[in-house]
């Protein structure tokens, strides 16, 4: 089933960066993710390129296939069309930006095949 939209995507939500700084979700920049991952002991930032966007099994859901990192690991996630992803150098983007803006007041660009999203991996194998 698609991942529901969590409350922290609502405009005005307070996000704590890894260095303790607080920012509103709509003010986050690519550098905030990069710098937070740099000082994280557990998480490493990686790039995930959107390879396909298909209709999901539920209404208002989409299946997004990503190619992750240098090894191009394939990851498929089913989310609601309004679910925002953070695109490097661009910011929040969703498959249906109008709906994201309507529901969460978060301005979004349209997520497209070829967009490179922020993703995370664990720093080391356990």
């Amino acid at each position: 089933s698609p991942v529901a939209l969590p409350p922290f995507f609502m405009r005005g939500s307070i996000i704590q960066l890894a260095d303790g700084e607080l920012k509103r979700v709509e003010d986050l920049k690519t550098e905030d993710f990069i710098q937070s991952a740099e000082i994280s002991s557990e998480l490493k930032i990686d790039s995930s390129t959107v390879e396909r966007i298909d209709c999901g099994q539920s209404p208002n859901a989409v299946l997004i296939q990503f190619s992750v990192g240098e090894l191009k690991a394939q990851v498929c996630v089913e989310v609601l069309v309004e679910y925002p992803f953070f695109v490097f150098g661009q910011g929040w983007s969703s498959c249906c930006p109008d709906r994201t803006t309507q529901l969460f007041e978060l301005s979004c660009a349209k997520l497209c095949v070829g967009d490179v999203c922020v993703s995370l991996t664990l720093r080391s194998l356990r």
């Binding site: 969590p6 409350p7 939500s13 307070i14 996000i15 979700v25 992803f85 993703s119």
Partner: peptide
């Protein structure tokens, strides 16, 4: 006011890649 950690904004944890 709730405060959310930055990493909660990233929707999935990609598979760990071995070196």
């Amino acid at each position: 006011v709730p405060v959310f950690p930055w990493h909660s904004l990233v929707p999935f944890l990609a598979p760990t890649q071995s070196d």
